[in-house]
Design a protein around this nucleic acid. Sequence first.
DNA 1: GGAAGATTGTTGTTGACGACAACAATTGGC
DNA 2: GCCAATTGTTGTCGTCAACAACAATCTTCC
Lengths: 164, 164
Amino acid sequence: MTARAAQTSPRKRAGNGAARQHDADEIGLDALVGHAGYAVRRFQIWIFQDFIRTLGDVDIRPTQYSVLTVIGANPGLSQMAVAKRLGIERARLVHLLDSLEQRKLVKRVKSKEDRRSHALHLTAQGETALAKFKRLAAEHERNVEAKIGRENREQLLRILAGFT
Amino acid sequence: MTARAAQTSPRKRAGNGAARQHDADEIGLDALVGHAGYAVRRFQIWIFQDFIRTLGDVDIRPTQYSVLTVIGANPGLSQMAVAKRLGIERARLVHLLDSLEQRKLVKRVKSKEDRRSHALHLTAQGETALAKFKRLAAEHERNVEAKIGRENREQLLRILAGFT
DNA sequence: GGAAGATTGTTGTTGACGACAACAATTGGC
DNA sequence: GCCAATTGTTGTCGTCAACAACAATCTTCC
């Protein structure tokens, strides 16, 4: 509280040269408050941690989930197409797919039309697994709703719809 | 457009086994739409890239800026206090401060009260530099406003205020 | 038809970042 | 005074974005 009051003149070197104890949660952020990026970053960290925790039993991370979802909804896509759509580097997608293919969730099929590219498909096992992942992801989404409120979550989705 | 229509039954394997060309931006996201985490992640990437670009001339990244800001507003803090306040690992903060100290923006002063800890201060050079960084950060914030709109940015800050 | 340039998947490197574990120095509880 | 906790530091590991280079293949252009 005293710290919060003291910040009315944040530039000055606080007068008391001898250190005063800051009680950890009364440390001012000054200019950081009012920066959208800072709030978004902290929120994104929280939301990813909850996602990873909620899907911990099935060992699926957010990026893996996004890849599986896009392939499931658009079978036959090339790696480039998936990478572009999700904003992932194609170099990075290689490792992601290596992992998912080892786990028999995804298969790379040589494309007949363009022999450079691979057509991506879910395996049968991948289809049923994804269904389970989606149920868990929905549970995670309910956690988000519980954290920030139903109304706020919907406004958030509306505001950021352009980035999806 | 055709792809968007086809997604009304997204589960099915799209009928046409032979690959159909997806025109890159008509690829469906299926369950990803409606996930707050995905939108937030994409937005966070955009916002950080703009921050890094806008402060490219002074070579300051978002995390460095947050550290400088907190130290500037609360001189004399220990490394633990800064790390806790910003949600940074204290191990990570060591490297951040090494870099900032090399650039003569921050100094670590041995604390008299607790000889384990360091009191963190901006150098004179650091103070003037931070003032410049704040001007550039404000410019970045105006870019955010231009991207999502003034109203939406304010709602976003309000919704996520609890995470700062 | 064939050379030149672009695209696709792959491998590798770099650096920022979060998480975790261990350690020495120091502090504080008892 | 002794034992537990804290602080800064070092190190490792894994995720992730950004590049660069490469072989195979496709496309364009002459």
